[in-house]
Write a protein that binds this DNA or RNA. Structure first.
Lengths: 160, 160
DNA sequence: GCTTTACCTAAGGTTAAGTTGAGGTTTTAG
DNA sequence: CTAAAACCTCAACTTAACCTTAGGTAAAGC
């Protein structure tokens, strides 16, 4: 009895996974080619999945919501133990890992926002000179005054 | 004398704009097709830009850093007065507009992070039931306990 | 047993935001 | 005046994350 029914069974067909995880079948095929999920085939060459694929997909979707690329997700997932079904702690540590990334992103966006905020006053939206476009010095520098407005470009152009 | 030189002039060639704004010429062509910037042509069919295109590009780049799409940027920029060169206040109000969007994004990411944080404890990374995948109820609901883990899916699957 | 539903693979399409290249014209520098 | 640098258009390519379609097989329902 290798064929799954609509009853709850430990091995799921691609359609069942799709319905439960609320993703398209094509997405599952795609994830498989990317090594994000795995399956084996039954006698008729159809995919069969272990139930923990649902958790995996859940994690994938959560990570995507955090703005993490599938490549990064794949890399992180590949660190899960292959020998055993991942434990709750496995997933939790993964979650903590991505949380840190999220924190970084939030911090970056916050810096950008504050910088835009600070720059409204002086109107220094001129490129190269304004920290908004130069994330590296986004923390250190500050823009103060109309001097930055257009003149620096002029000076630079003259030197080229 | 309609041809721009390396000296500072009110009308800029595409190459000059590219250099000053630190973007590729191809990107400027692209922006123009998308209606983000505008130019007129000289006798030899070459693009000429008004200087305020630099400010425009600066704003475009700033908005992109905030994760705003070119389409949205175009829509916002199209609200600028066509009749006159935009004033500092025009740009400032635009900046405030995007800043609000940034705030939203930050708030969203923060909610996601906090939710992931809260969910580590109960391990409820199961789809549909977990607020992480359901941004709509991300604020209201909370996940508490292992009950949510897999059972709800089972119940739902049985009904389909 | 037959028909409908589910599944298979492989190739091509989609969107965003550009980049690259071909083939040809214009400007600029000397 | 001539050669190099800059510019022009148009089409095709790029990456990510899938979706769609075609042509064909397998499984499930009655």
């Amino acid at each position: 009895m290798t064929t799954p029914t609509t009853r709850d069974e430990p091995r799921l067909s691609v359609g069942q996974v799709a319905k439960r995880a609320d993703v398209a079948v094509s997405a599952l095929h795609f994830y498989e080619t990317k090594g994000l999920i795995r399956s084996w085939r039954n006698a008729g060459n159809q995919r069969r999945f272990k139930k923990d694929v649902l958790r995996r997909i859940a994690v994938i979707k959560a990570a995507q919501k955090m703005g993490i690329s599938l490549l990064e997700i794949q890399e992180t997932l590949s660190k899960l133990p292959e020998s055993r079904t991942p434990t709750k702690e496995d997933w939790a540590s993964m979650s903590r890992f991505w949380q840190a990334k999220l924190d970084e992103k939030i911090a970056y966006m916050t810096r950008v926002r504050d910088m835009v905020d600070g720059c409204i006053g002086c109107g220094c939206l001129s490129m190269k000179s304004c920290p908004i476009y130069n994330p590296d010095d986004i923390v250190a520098k500050e823009c103060n005054g109309a001097v930055i407005l257009d003149q620096p470009e002029r000076a630079r152009a003259a030197k080229n």
